[in-house]
Structure formats: structure tokens, C-alpha cells
Nucleic acid binder design. Structure first.
Lengths: 140, 140
DNA sequence: CTTAGGTGTACTTAGTATAGTTACAGCCTC
DNA sequence: GAGGCTGTAACTATACTAAGTACACCTAAG
């Protein structure tokens, strides 16, 4: 397994809001498009709201984009639904400090992992949600 | 959570074999450096062996490198310990085909995800295990 | 050829993350 | 004030991982 499907659901939600702008989309409606439970949608909308990507108000249907989709990158969405401390690469935690390799492997690997993660994030940052939404629309 | 720590353990193992070349490292010795159970090491060594990165023989201590560390990239190691079908990005599986967005979002996201994954893999491919091993040694 | 040590692998267990679900308090709007 | 919706807590089922136990089999050394 890997990166949570929250990410793909979040992208789905934002695309829906964009393409139905003006409509008041309930979490139930969105859930029927994603094909999941409305609570799952509300949870993810909550994360997007905390990240400042959408604005919602309790008790009122219809989340709105906090800024144009062209100013929201896939990386913004990724980070919104990913718990911050969650590292992409896991590391074995307590190598033996009495061993020269065990003592130093973590620092060396950290560097490699960070570079790899940055490369992925840079790629995500290069795509905006607007591009995604237009791509989806072009297939319809 | 994220990419299994098998990856970091595998890198640790290869570094050890490299730096103690000639010695016959038992899974128990390696396990004490990684600080885990010998069976975990044997399992991962098995994956490295299947991937053609090391050679082992049943009943005999001392795995050997199948080729020089300079010809083994971090991506090779990553792929060796990662089940092939395992995608980095998960996708919600059954969006509603009756919705224009639900019907097309997967294809669009697939493209974005693939690019991001490739960016990460390209970065991993640019680092050899030899570089890692030398970096570890330089800290000792 | 016997035996001690080691590998390869199946099976079990425990911990953790996720998605899905139920339930409900609180907020808006009509 | 009533209905509809959100936000969130709590629970369940599922899946993956790491760790650990057990054991059959292999090899090399004596």
C-alpha cells in the first residue's frame, strides 16, 4: 500500500466543485459521485478547509473554492490530506550504534530519501488542479 | 505510513556486505546491526536474491554481491523489496460512471500519479549503492 | 557419514493505518 | 422552530507490516 486514496478523493472533490461552481453540492451528492460514504467526504473537505483550499460553513451545503483552481497545485492537495509528520519513506528505527554502518546509515539514507521525496513533490507542484479539471472535462 | 522499511533495511544489508566483503556474514550478525530478527534479514535477502542483486546459498553463511555496488542503483533496491503491483498512489476504486467527473477522473489522475512516481524513481535511479556505502563510510 | 550451524519458508501474533459506518450535537436557512 | 446539513466522535472491518516461532533442508567440517 501507499499514499492514501484520500488524495485522489480530494482531487475528485475539487474537480466537482469547480465544474459545478454555483451549485450547492451536499456531501451526499459528492459521495455519490465518488461512490463512498458522505462522512468520508466531510472528513476530507474538513482537511481541505483546514489547509485553506476551500471554505465551508457548518450546517450549509456547498463548499466553495478559497482561491481559483489555477492557484492550487496537486502538491497543495497532497499536503492537505497527508498528516504532516508522515514521511514517504519509512526507516528501520534503531540500528545498532556499536556498528559503524548501523551508526551512520540513517543520516546517509535520510539524504537519499529526502531527495527522492522532493523530486516527487516538485512534479506534483508543477500540475495545477485547474489543469486536472480541464483534462477531466476534455474527456467528457 | 508509507514505503516499507524493507527498503532501508535492504540498503543497510547491502552496505554491510560491501564494507565487510570477504567476511561471511550470518543473518544473525546482520540482524544485530539492523537491530531486528534474523528471519527479517533472511526474508529481505531472499528478495534481493530473487532480484539478482546478491547470491546466497542455502545453508551457507555469507551473501555475496551479484555485481559491483556501483552497478546497483537505489531504484534497483527499491524495486527488489517492493511487490511489483504495489502502486505508490492509491486511487478510490469505483467512482460513479453516471457522473461526468466520476467517469473520467481516474484516467486523468493516473497520468498525474505516474509522472510523480517516475520523478521519484528517476531520482532513486541516479544514486548508486556504492555512493551510499561510501557516504556511510565517510561518516565513520 | 554424521553433526553442528545456517538458510529458506510457512505460520502466527501484535500493532497500526485506512475506509466505511452509525450516531448525534450544533449550525443555518426558510 | 423545523428540516437539512455539517462537523466530529466512536466503532468495525480490513489490510499490511514487522516481529517472532518452528522446522525442514542444505552444506561444510571433522
Amino acid at each position: 500500500m501507499a499514499i492514501s486514496s484520500r488524495f485522489s478523493v480530494a482531487a475528485h472533490i475539487l474537480t466537482l466543485i469547480h465544474q459545478k461552481e454555483g451549485d450547492r453540492l451536499t456531501s451526499e451528492f459528492i459521495a455519490s459521485s465518488v461512490n463512498t460514504n458522505p462522512v468520508v467526504i466531510r472528513r476530507i473537505l474538513g482537511m481541505l478547509s483546514k489547509a485553506g483550499l476551500v471554505r465551508t460553513s457548518a450546517g450549509v451545503a456547498g463548499a466553495r473554492l478559497a482561491r481559483p483552481l489555477g492557484e492550487i497545485t496537486m502538491l497543495d492537495v497532497y499536503r492537505a490530506v497527508q498528516s504532516e509528520q508522515e514521511e514517504l519513506f519509512a526507516m528501520h528505527e534503531h540500528p545498532n550504534p556499536a556498528c559503524p554502518v548501523g551508526r551512520n546509515i540513517q543520516a546517509s539514507l535520510d539524504h537519499v530519501f529526502l531527495d527522492a521525496q522532493r523530486a516527487m513533490e516538485a512534479q506534483l507542484a508543477s500540475v495545477t488542479m485547474e489543469q486536472l479539471s480541464l483534462d477531466v472535462a476534455s474527456r467528457a
